[in-house]
Design a protein around this nucleic acid. Structure first.
Lengths: 196, 196
DNA sequence: CCTACCGATCGGTAGG
DNA sequence: CCTACCGATCGGTAGG
């Protein structure tokens, strides 16, 4: 809250989140231990437990941290023209895994835990609702301005989310060059087909 | 190989794969231990290690087992009409997570390990190629018969895979009713838009 | 395949 | 926050 947005040091909690991120990237979720997080943090495991009583509590906080970072990558779309705005939004949603592969990998690992952790699922649902709201708003705006056909904005939004999530999953799992370009093109074809 | 396809007992390896499946379903990948697998198997951990030297070796065999089961769910499309055949294929690919949620959950967990396990990634790539080949063959058949437009079959196939994988991921993570119906409809819209 | 066990590591805590 | 430690559990093995 003190706003060291650019400062190289900040609150211990933020440092621990960063350390968790590095540990997850290096070892994967299944081998993510308090000891490794503490090692990345540069302090003892007791220091970690001083800030987060249990591992579960730390992981939920970490998911919030991850989702914040994710939302940050798609927040600054500034154009007002609906079609262009939708294009830019889709660019960010689909090409994010390319620029932030570590983030995409970590997100998929956390996502795969959702069936076992209700806390995780709730947060992913909230995040998904937020992203869908952004897309839906642009589509509705385009419909109002007569730039898009009068479609079911909610349905089209969900269709685009399928493509976005498919792209993300495939980018992480298969790691094939060109997969994101294909996804972007598919999204464009879908937009052209149903909105115009 | 002795073919007890319906027998309630079979080779120890198959029993262990089944036990691993149950243990994974119950505890998740991060808490999947040899001890729990052995408990499901009904024998000692040494019995498990007798068949699989290391946990890694067991997991790779288990992924093969999972992918076989997955392929089995999409093998028996019998129609010859291209459009109908593509529809049935997409039905199976998209609605599979509904009928086999455990399988879909397990698959996503294994998928999330791909960045850390080259063995896993290779197998997912092989499986993906197989599924894509099936779809592409149907599309090319439709093009040859003049039922579909003369499109880039490979590109359309990849577009459909995005939707399929998006649907699977979202079904597991968000667990929202209706998500698969939406995905199926999106796939139909995409097919209509680019193939006809 | 089993019993019995190995060293290593786990999440978490007591006491300062 | 640290040192030092807890009981529990991990993957894996020896010997039969």
């Amino acid at each position: 809250m003190a706003d060291p947005t650019e400062g190289s040091f900040s609150e211990p909690e933020t440092e621990i989140m960063r350390a968790t991120y590095r540990a997850l990237r290096e070892h994967g979720y299944a081998d993510l231990t308090i000891k490794r997080i503490a090692a990345e943090y540069g302090k003892s495991t007791a220091a970690v437990h001083y800030h987060y009583d249990t591992k579960d509590e730390l992981l939920v906080a970490f998911l919030d941290y991850l989702l914040e970072r994710f939302v940050d990558t798609i927040r600054d779309v500034e154009t007002t023209d609906p079609h262009q705005r939708l294009d830019l939004l889709l660019d960010e949603l689909i090409f994010a895994p390319e620029e932030h592969r570590d983030l995409a990998v970590a997100m998929l690992e956390m996502r795969a835990q959702a069936p076992y952790k209700g806390d995780f699922r709730e947060r992913f649902r909230g995040n998904d609702e937020y992203v869908r709201y952004m897309i839906k708003a642009v589509i509705n705006h385009g419909i109002d301005e007569g730039e898009f056909d009068d479609v079911d904005a909610d349905h089209v939004t969900r269709g685009l989310m399928m493509i976005v999530d498919g792209a993300r999953t495939r980018a992480v799992v298969l790691d094939e060059p060109g997969a994101l370009e294909t996804a972007r093109q598919t999204a464009a074809e879908y937009v052209d087909a149903v909105l115009t």
